[in-house]
Design a protein around this nucleic acid. Structure first.
Lengths: 219, 219, 219, 219
DNA sequence: AATGAATGAGGTTTCATTCAT
DNA sequence: GATGAATGAAACCTCATTCAT
């Protein structure tokens, strides 16, 4: 009956918060944002509806927190990729080709980690269309990825590995392909479109395209 | 004195139906599916709420009809591309490269035609995640596009224009890039990501990639 | 193209009116008053909704007209029973027993005539609970029936056929049994409760009861 | 500070549920099922509309619950009548006449208990015409009453108290008269038809009829 | 911190009725 | 007389959020 210590309280809060986020993730993935009721989340999380509001100010808040969670993860993944790279322990500089390949693998890894991630992402996009907060987070993630890709491309071009191209425009490509493949896989199923494979094969083809002087299609 | 003729009634219904669809398009684009009120659509269309239900059974029905409208248009565009091609008047066969280019241009054209199309597409995707009807229409559209691309690639490979690749997987690429670029442009704005440019430059790069034997590793 | 004569017009109106009433009868029986839509009736009658309003001022008006139709029929039946009786051609006065029996047969006849009558009656009762017009018609019909029965009973008592009873109270019995049997047959089906049989057997038993001095139940 | 205990919550729910049912009873009786608005019930019950839906899934559900409540009461009354009878303390068996009388008194008691019961019953009948659930409950109640009456009649016949009659058909009589009298009293008012009196006098007459060999013809 | 009964604004949908043709 | 497109009032119901316990 002795009051809980501060640390105990915080641990409880952290655990409970995570449980709620997990429950929300599951239900949002199944039902989508608008068809999810707070009571559903509460039930799956095993808490009362009131409790949800001790941890998140609103349904939107909860959804955003969830989306930010994986955005953080993704961002950390990308940054990690290059942080390692900068460590001087690597005897030799990694080639641009290797870096491109590494980015692809990172994206592919996300799909293997969590089967329910893709549907929530699609919801997030629709949500981001109307929510400045979501847009900002999305933009930051995009810019991180874009920045990395720009660096890779420019390095490759500088070193003569790649031919010269419109770096600014093409820097969006990884994100474009990642999201496009996620979308198609979510709606049509992975039997129809395997996002990992699409990303991998595309990256390979694009890489090959970077090696040759343009054949000069008119488009 | 005498009642309206059948033709008069049909004309009225066709016109009114189109007016409602246009209004719905506008409001759905602005607000998204869930934040759109039937009263908003009615007001923009200049009719009463009741009238909406003379033309569409429900809000979902209206939204689907709208999405089917542009899906039909897009599908017609793709099929038209190849129908022309089959006309025997062309003394020489169009090259695979030209066909690829034509597909890109078609996709790009859609964005120029209708500024408000993109946001509704994103809504449609989220919607398609839960609605079998929407999924089916989406799948049909995808397969049409995929089929065309498969043909182009196989023709190109057969004629020796292209190297041999995983046609099945890469046939999803146009749709992946189209949707991915649409998404990014919708959320981040065309200043950040110009979908037409992304499509064009990507197509070019991919095309170049198709010309050379792969220099890359397996990744 | 010559304009129709007044008689033709009236004939058309009468026919059309009857068609609408028949359609209404059918739909009201199937669906009940509140679940019947004017459009249903219009469709079954083979006319437009607007036309209904050329013949009846409102849905309530149409329903009442329908109910009044059979009320008139029933009332005519009862009155007819006694009109015949008063004709001097009958060499001998009909006995009270015979009259009672005749009333029973009349009631039973209604059930055989029209299978769909019973459900509409139940609707009418619920309706009559709130509508003064319906109540009044119902009361008039009741009083006609009651009046006839009072006469029969009083004649029978006067002639010594029947013992003395509370005529006022028991004069409601035919209506009570008729309606009660109608109700049960409508809800439970004629397999469970055969209204004709119930009426017949009850009448018989009651008649027997009228013959003997009360055994003096305490109730 | 601490949340309410389970018992507290249950007590609240039980009380509130009863309050809502009472309010519904009152409003349904006044206005009928279809003209009753959920907002009316909410107002009379002193709760918000939303609260109604915490206790009943729909307007139909609420109405059915209400009807089931009195059906349960009525059924308990009938069963109670015979349960007492089976107690071995009674030195002598109750006569069939006494049992018939008891049943009449029970029916009459219902009308005295609750002035507003009758109109709701009429609504329930109309409702039962279209609702399988209501039909089933109605049938069960009917069968209970019928079963009791069959027993009474057969016992009476076996003991020689009553003459032999069509027990199956006449076993519906109490229900027929009860419902018929309820209906007439509801529509015409108790001044015109006193249901208690009708039931009592009818029972008496029928009882007398059971004593004598039929003098009547087949009608 | 946790609970869950209660709220109430507001959305979609229905349908009797009107009226221009 | 006949039509059927159009109306618009209002009903049922949902669900995020609050707050007394």
């Amino acid at each position: 009956m002795s009051p809980r210590t501060k640390e105990q309280n915080e641990r409880i809060r952290r655990t409970r918060r995570r449980e709620i986020l997990d429950a929300a993730h599951q239900v949002f993935a199944e039902r989508g944002f608008h068809d999810t009721r707070m009571s559903d989340i509460a039930q799956v999380a095993g808490v009362s509806q009131g409790t949800l509001y001790h941890y998140f100010a609103s349904k939107d808040d909860l959804f955003l927190a969830l989306c930010f969670t994986w955005a953080d993860l993704m961002e950390a993944g990308i940054k990690g990729l290059f942080a390692e790279d900068e460590s001087p322990s690597a005897s030799e500089k990694t080639s641009a080709a290797d870096k491109m390949s590494a980015m692809s693998h990172l994206a592919m890894a996300f799909f293997r980690t969590d089967e329910e991630l893709a549907p929530v992402l699609v919801e997030f996009w629709a949500y981001a269309l109307r929510s400045p907060k979501a847009t900002e987070r999305f933009r930051a993630l995009f810019e991180t990825m874009q920045h990395s890709y720009v660096t890779i491309l420019e390095d490759g071009i500088a070193s003569g590995e790649f031919k010269s191209i419109d770096v600014q425009t093409l820097s969006a490509l990884p994100f474009v392909v990642l999201d496009g493949a996620t979308l198609l896989a979510s709606i049509l199923g992975r039997d129809t479109v395997d996002p990992g494979l699409v990303i991998e094969k595309t990256q390979q083809l694009v890489f090959d395209g970077l090696l040759v002087e343009s054949g000069g299609g008119e488009s």
